[in-house]
């Protein structure tokens, strides 16, 4: 099973490489760092969603708030069966629905994202409604770490704790690097976990590239009844490619044919 999941993660990374090479470009760094988070959610039975019935009333809802990392998100949605894998070839091409940032015209997408700091407030509203209706559906919100510099994140974090939304889970892709450089140099977030704890969240830090560890935690949420959960997934920006790891150079970019071949070799063969 773990090998299957490792293979799935590898496949998502290859999709990202193709999307970044066959289109004007993609947010490679944040896509690669989020791969295992998406793998655990979609392919290890965490998310209760049905690609054949994406609007089922009591489904879990995943809000992909770091919408710029759409390449990985679309790869996961396609592999999960929300739309054909072949459609990935249309990424950011004229007439395609696969825009640079996700929107609700794409099956499986719950919220149009791309302007950062929007996912959590909307997630709070969804979780409040689910709670009031005693729906078994949970709300998962994947956010970037740089995104946590937005004030709206902390407004919503306050509200989620105040209303005791234990059906709400935030997963932070803590890759430590934002567009302009390391988060701690641009606008420091640390002590990051302490901030979430101080806001009243059940807080856990995991290796964000260990699908097993992510999965174990995500299968256990809520970590504390009556509190929202935040999973701080420590990740590596650009994970998996020698040239994109731990640098903001590949925050966004177009892969040349040469780099594409190198990337696919490093990931172990073509898709």
């Amino acid at each position: 099973m773990v090998n299957d999941l490792a293979e799935k993660a590898r496949m998502l990374r290859k999709h990202v490489v193709h999307l970044a090479a066959d289109s004007p470009g993609a947010h490679v760094g944040g896509s690669m760092s989020a791969v295992e988070i998406l793998t655990a959610l979609y392919f290890d039975g965490v998310l209760r969603v049905d690609p054949a019935n994406p609007s089922a009333p009591d489904r879990d809802r995943l809000i992909f708030s770091k919408g710029h990392s759409s390449a990985a998100y679309y790869a996961a949605l396609a592999e999960a069966g929300f739309f054909p894998v072949s459609e990935l070839d249309t990424y950011k091409k004229t007439g395609s629905r696969l825009a640079g940032h996700p929107h609700t015209g794409i099956p499986g997408v719950e919220l149009a994202t791309g302007s950062l700091g929007h996912g959590l407030p909307v997630g709070v509203g969804l979780a409040m409604a689910a709670s009031a209706d005693r729906s078994p559906g949970r709300v998962f919100v994947i956010v970037g770490d740089g995104e946590c510099q937005e004030g709206s994140m902390w407004e919503a974090a306050m509200a989620a704790a105040h209303y005791g939304l234990d059906n709400l889970v935030v997963i932070v892709d803590r890759n430590g690097i934002q567009e302009d450089g390391p988060t701690e140099e641009i606008m420091a977030l640390e002590p990051f976990a302490d901030k979430w704890r101080a806001f009243g969240w059940a807080t856990v830090e995991v290796d964000g590239h260990d699908v097993g560890e992510l999965s174990t935690v995500l299968h256990e949420v809520p970590l504390t009844w009556g509190r929202p959960t935040v999973v701080i997934a420590k990740t590596v920006k650009g994970k998996g490619l020698s040239f994109s790891e731990n640098t903001n150079t590949w925050h966004y970019g177009h892969l040349s044919e040469e780099l594409k071949e190198q990337a696919l070799r490093e990931l172990g063969g073509v898709r």
């Binding site: 407030p121 909307v122 509203g125 409604a129």
Partner: peptide, 11 residues
């Protein structure tokens, strides 16, 4: 944002 989420969930 939360008002939007509540509306999306049927409120």
């Amino acid at each position: 944002g939360a008002a939007a989420g509540l509306a999306m969930a049927g409120k």
